[in-house]
Amino acid sequence: MQIFVKTLTGKTITLEVEPSDTIENVKAKIQDKEGIPPDQQRLIFAGKQLEDGRTLSDYNIQKESTLHLVLR
Results as ranks from 00 to 15, higher is better:
residue 56 L to E: 00
residue 61 I to G: 01
residue 32 D to V: 12
residue 34 E to D: 08
residue 14 T to P: 08
residue 47 G to H: 10
residue 57 S to D: 07
residue 5 V to L: 02
residue 51 E to V: 03
residue 52 D to G: 05
residue 68 H to S: 13
residue 56 L to K: 00
residue 55 T to W: 10
residue 6 K to R: 13
residue 47 G to F: 04
residue 63 K to T: 11
residue 39 D to Y: 11
residue 49 Q to V: 03
residue 7 T to E: 09
residue 39 D to G: 07
residue 32 D to Y: 12
residue 54 R to V: 08
residue 4 F to C: 02
residue 12 T to G: 10
residue 68 H to V: 05
residue 71 L to G: 15
residue 61 I to E: 01
residue 15 L to D: 00
residue 49 Q to Y: 09
residue 19 P to W: 05
residue 35 G to M: 08
residue 50 L to D: 00
residue 66 T to S: 06
residue 63 K to E: 07
residue 8 L to I: 06
residue 33 K to F: 13
residue 33 K to P: 10
residue 39 D to M: 04
residue 30 I to F: 08
residue 38 P to L: 13
residue 71 L to H: 08
residue 11 K to Y: 05
residue 22 T to M: 09
residue 59 Y to A: 03
residue 54 R to D: 05
residue 38 P to D: 15
residue 6 K to W: 10
residue 40 Q to G: 14
residue 65 S to D: 15
residue 28 A to S: 08
residue 56 L to A: 05
residue 39 D to N: 05
residue 67 L to S: 01
residue 1 M to V: 04
residue 37 P to S: 11
residue 13 I to K: 01
residue 41 Q to V: 11
residue 35 G to L: 10
residue 22 T to L: 15
residue 35 G to T: 08
residue 42 R to V: 10
residue 9 T to K: 12
residue 42 R to A: 13
residue 48 K to L: 13
residue 33 K to S: 14
residue 57 S to P: 09
residue 69 L to P: 00
residue 20 S to D: 12
residue 32 D to N: 07
residue 25 N to I: 08
residue 52 D to M: 13
residue 25 N to E: 12
residue 71 L to M: 06
residue 66 T to A: 13
residue 67 L to R: 01
residue 18 E to W: 06
residue 18 E to A: 11
residue 71 L to V: 04
residue 25 N to R: 07
residue 47 G to L: 05
residue 29 K to I: 06
residue 56 L to S: 01
residue 20 S to F: 08
residue 70 V to C: 02
residue 10 G to P: 15
residue 23 I to C: 02
residue 2 Q to I: 06
residue 42 R to P: 01
residue 7 T to V: 11
residue 62 Q to W: 14
residue 49 Q to R: 04
residue 42 R to L: 07
residue 50 L to T: 04
residue 17 V to I: 12
residue 51 E to H: 05
residue 71 L to R: 07
residue 29 K to C: 02
residue 43 L to I: 06
residue 70 V to E: 13
residue 17 V to M: 09
residue 69 L to T: 03
residue 33 K to V: 13
residue 2 Q to A: 03
residue 48 K to N: 13
residue 6 K to V: 08
residue 16 E to A: 08
residue 36 I to K: 05
residue 22 T to F: 14
residue 1 M to C: 01
residue 58 D to R: 06
residue 7 T to W: 07
residue 6 K to P: 01
residue 42 R to T: 14
residue 71 L to K: 10
residue 29 K to M: 06
residue 72 R to H: 14
residue 23 I to M: 06
residue 25 N to D: 03
residue 9 T to F: 04
residue 64 E to F: 13
residue 12 T to F: 10
residue 6 K to C: 03
residue 31 Q to E: 06
residue 20 S to L: 15
residue 59 Y to N: 06
residue 23 I to P: 09
residue 68 H to P: 01
residue 38 P to I: 12
residue 27 K to T: 11
residue 36 I to F: 13
residue 26 V to Y: 00
residue 8 L to K: 15
residue 39 D to T: 08
residue 52 D to L: 07
residue 69 L to S: 02
residue 13 I to D: 01
residue 41 Q to R: 03
residue 40 Q to A: 08
residue 43 L to V: 06
residue 65 S to Y: 10
residue 53 G to W: 09
residue 57 S to A: 15
residue 22 T to I: 11
residue 5 V to I: 11
residue 19 P to I: 09
residue 40 Q to F: 11
residue 5 V to E: 00
residue 71 L to P: 14
residue 10 G to E: 12
residue 11 K to F: 14
residue 48 K to W: 14
residue 46 A to E: 14
residue 66 T to E: 14
residue 55 T to H: 06
residue 60 N to T: 11
residue 30 I to E: 00
residue 53 G to R: 09
residue 11 K to D: 15
residue 20 S to G: 15
residue 40 Q to H: 07
residue 1 M to T: 11
residue 62 Q to A: 13
residue 6 K to E: 14
residue 21 D to Q: 07
residue 18 E to G: 12
residue 68 H to K: 14
residue 72 R to A: 15
residue 46 A to T: 04
residue 49 Q to S: 11
residue 50 L to G: 01
residue 17 V to F: 03
residue 12 T to C: 02
residue 31 Q to A: 11
residue 59 Y to R: 01
residue 30 I to P: 00
residue 58 D to N: 08
residue 9 T to N: 09
residue 2 Q to S: 10
residue 63 K to M: 07
residue 35 G to A: 14
residue 44 I to P: 00
residue 8 L to G: 02
residue 8 L to S: 07
residue 11 K to A: 13
residue 44 I to F: 13
residue 69 L to A: 04
residue 13 I to A: 03
residue 19 P to F: 14
residue 53 G to A: 08
residue 36 I to L: 13
residue 13 I to L: 12
residue 34 E to N: 02
residue 2 Q to K: 12
residue 8 L to M: 11
residue 21 D to E: 06
residue 5 V to C: 02
residue 21 D to Y: 06
residue 23 I to K: 01
residue 70 V to D: 08
residue 42 R to I: 15
residue 47 G to P: 01
residue 58 D to T: 04
residue 52 D to Y: 05
residue 70 V to K: 08
residue 29 K to N: 09
residue 68 H to N: 10
residue 70 V to Y: 05
residue 13 I to R: 03
residue 47 G to D: 15
residue 70 V to S: 14
residue 19 P to T: 13
residue 33 K to L: 10
residue 14 T to S: 07
residue 38 P to H: 09
residue 2 Q to H: 09
residue 44 I to M: 05
residue 29 K to E: 15
residue 42 R to Y: 12
residue 53 G to Q: 12
residue 50 L to R: 00
residue 7 T to H: 15
residue 65 S to V: 14
residue 46 A to V: 11
residue 72 R to I: 15
residue 45 F to D: 04
residue 45 F to E: 03
residue 41 Q to T: 10
residue 26 V to P: 00
residue 11 K to H: 13
residue 10 G to W: 07
residue 52 D to R: 04
residue 14 T to Q: 04
residue 70 V to L: 10
residue 29 K to W: 05
residue 20 S to C: 02
residue 48 K to F: 08
residue 39 D to L: 05
residue 52 D to K: 06
residue 27 K to W: 08
residue 36 I to P: 15
residue 58 D to H: 07
residue 60 N to P: 07
residue 39 D to Q: 07
residue 19 P to L: 14
residue 59 Y to H: 03
residue 13 I to E: 02
residue 50 L to S: 01
residue 11 K to I: 12
residue 24 E to M: 05
residue 13 I to M: 11
residue 19 P to M: 05
residue 52 D to V: 02
residue 21 D to G: 11
residue 17 V to L: 13
residue 35 G to W: 09
residue 20 S to R: 11
residue 41 Q to F: 04
residue 18 E to F: 01
residue 44 I to K: 03
residue 20 S to W: 08
residue 37 P to Y: 13
residue 36 I to Y: 05
residue 49 Q to G: 12
residue 26 V to T: 05
residue 41 Q to G: 10
residue 15 L to N: 00
residue 7 T to K: 06
residue 56 L to T: 04
residue 72 R to S: 11
residue 26 V to K: 00
residue 27 K to P: 00
residue 62 Q to F: 15
residue 15 L to E: 00
residue 30 I to W: 01
residue 44 I to S: 11
residue 11 K to S: 06
residue 67 L to F: 04
residue 33 K to W: 11
residue 54 R to C: 02
residue 60 N to V: 04
residue 66 T to R: 04
residue 21 D to V: 15
residue 41 Q to N: 03
residue 54 R to Q: 10
residue 71 L to C: 02
residue 9 T to Q: 09
residue 47 G to E: 14
residue 4 F to N: 13
residue 42 R to C: 03
residue 11 K to W: 11
residue 31 Q to G: 08
residue 4 F to G: 05
residue 34 E to W: 06
residue 23 I to D: 01
residue 51 E to L: 03
residue 53 G to P: 07
residue 68 H to E: 13
residue 61 I to V: 10
residue 45 F to N: 06
residue 12 T to Y: 09
residue 58 D to W: 10
residue 43 L to N: 00
residue 68 H to G: 12
residue 8 L to N: 12
residue 62 Q to C: 02
residue 61 I to A: 02
residue 7 T to R: 02
residue 71 L to A: 11
residue 9 T to E: 12
residue 13 I to W: 12
residue 2 Q to M: 08
residue 59 Y to L: 05
residue 20 S to P: 10
residue 59 Y to I: 03
residue 16 E to Y: 14
residue 5 V to W: 01
residue 30 I to D: 00
residue 72 R to L: 06
residue 22 T to A: 12
residue 22 T to H: 07
residue 63 K to I: 14
residue 67 L to P: 01
residue 34 E to P: 02
residue 18 E to L: 04
residue 1 M to D: 06
residue 22 T to C: 02
residue 1 M to Q: 05
residue 49 Q to F: 07
residue 57 S to K: 04
residue 5 V to F: 05
residue 23 I to S: 04
residue 39 D to W: 07
residue 12 T to L: 07
residue 70 V to A: 15
residue 3 I to P: 00
residue 41 Q to W: 15
residue 47 G to M: 08
residue 71 L to Y: 06
residue 20 S to E: 07
residue 63 K to F: 10
